Computed example of a mutant assay.
Amino acid sequence: MASQIDVSAQDLSDFPKVPFGIRHNLANNPLLSLDRLIELAASMPRDSIEYNSGKVGIDQNPETVPLIDMDPVEVVRRIREANAWLVLKRVERDPAYGALLTEVLDRFARDLGHANAAAAGFTNIEGFVFVSSPNATTPFHSDPEDNFFVQVHGEKFFHIIDNQDGGVVSAAEMEFAPDAHRNHAYKPEFEARARVFSMNAGDGCFVPYQWPHWVRTGATYSISMAITWKSTEVKRRNRLLFVNAMLRRAGMPQPAPGRRPALDAVKVAAYTGLRAAIEPLRRVQGLRAQHGK
C-alpha cells in the first residue's frame, strides 16, 4: 500500500494556518520498526543524533537538561527502560527514508490538487524520527517549518498552543539566532489556548509553522516521525526573523514581521550577505539548537 496521510475528514481551506488531526498508514512500515531504527542509528553520524534524559520539565532550562551516559544505539535498543528521549535527524539522507517522505508528501499534494510535492511548494523536505521512553517530555518550543507529525508506536499527547495574537510567545522570542535555543518559557495558563491531540499508532497532527507546542509520551515507549517542509513564504519569514535577531543583538530591536513590509523586504534581501558571515555559527549550533518531540 502506498504511504499516505488521510485528510479526507478535514476542511483544508485554512491550510497551512491552523493545526488539525490526521490518520496515516505508516504505523506498520518496516522502516519505522524499532529493529530498523536500531540499524539506522548505527549508520548515522553522531552529530545527527540527539538524546538526553526523558525526565525533563515542560519549561526545562536548556542549560540544565539531564543527560544519560549511554551510546545512542543502545538508547534505541533499550528505550523501554532507558528513561530517555532521542531524535534521529535528517533521516531523508538515507535513500529509503527520503523516498518515503517524498511519497507521503506527493500524495498529500495531490489531495490539495497539485501534481506533486514540488508543485505544491513543499521544499526542504526533512524527516526526524523520535524514539522516547514511557512518560518522557519534550519541552515547550516552536519550529521553523510546517510539520506532519505521525505516531507510529505507543501513545503521545501533543499540546499545540494558539499564539496567533502573540499573547503566549512574543515576536522577539520567535526570532532565532544561530547559537540560540528554541525552547520558550511556559506557564500552565497557556493550556487554556491549547489543542491537545491524543495519539496512538496511526494518528497524527499537522503542526503549523511556529505554533508553540510541548509533548509527552504515555505508559509505553513511543516511536514518532516529523515530516517537515518549508514553503517559499516560510523561508522568507525565517530569513527575516534571522536578520531581526542579529539586529536585536546589536542593540536595534525590530518591529514584528508584517508591521513594516518595505523594511522587511530590505532585510530579506540583506540576508544573503549576512549568511556568509554567520555560516560558521550555523554549523556549530544550527537554527534548531535543539529539536525534540
Rank of each mutant, 00 (worst) to 15 (best):
M1G: 11
A2E: 04
S3A: 15
Q4F: 07
I5P: 08
D6G: 00
V7F: 00
V7A: 14
S8I: 00
Q10P: 01
L12D: 04
S13N: 11
S13Y: 03
K17A: 15
F20S: 09
H24Q: 14
A27P: 01
A27C: 10
P30A: 12
P30E: 13
P30C: 03
L32V: 13
D35Q: 15
D35L: 07
R46I: 03
S48N: 11
S48K: 11
E50L: 09
G54Y: 12
G57I: 06
E63F: 13
V65M: 04
M70K: 15
D71S: 11
E74I: 07
I79Q: 08
R80K: 15
A82W: 03
L86S: 04
V91P: 01
P95Q: 01
A96M: 08
A96I: 00
A96S: 14
A99S: 11
L100P: 13
L101W: 06
T102N: 14
V104W: 05
L105K: 02
R107T: 14
F108L: 06
D111P: 02
G113V: 01
G113R: 03
G113N: 04
N116P: 04
G121P: 08
T123A: 14
E126G: 10
F130S: 07
V131H: 09
N135G: 03
P139W: 07
P139F: 04
S142T: 10
P144I: 09
N147H: 02
V150A: 15
V150F: 00
V150T: 14
V152S: 00
H153L: 03
I160A: 05
N163Y: 03
N163M: 07
G166D: 09
V168D: 00
S170Q: 09
A171F: 02
A172Q: 12
M174K: 14
E175F: 01
E175Y: 05
A180G: 06
H181E: 01
R182C: 03
A185N: 14
F197H: 10
N200Q: 14
G202T: 04
G204C: 08
C205H: 11
P208Q: 07
P212W: 03
W214A: 12
R216W: 07
R216C: 13
A219H: 11
T220Q: 11
I223C: 09
M225S: 02
M225N: 05
K230Q: 13
K235C: 07
L241N: 04
N244P: 02
N244S: 09
A245P: 10
M246S: 09
L247M: 08
R249V: 01
A250G: 12
G251C: 06
M252S: 12
Q254V: 08
P255L: 02
P257G: 02
A265S: 14
T272S: 13
R275K: 13
I278K: 02
R282Y: 10
R282M: 13
R283G: 06
R283C: 03
Q285T: 13
G286Q: 07
G286T: 11
K293Q: 01
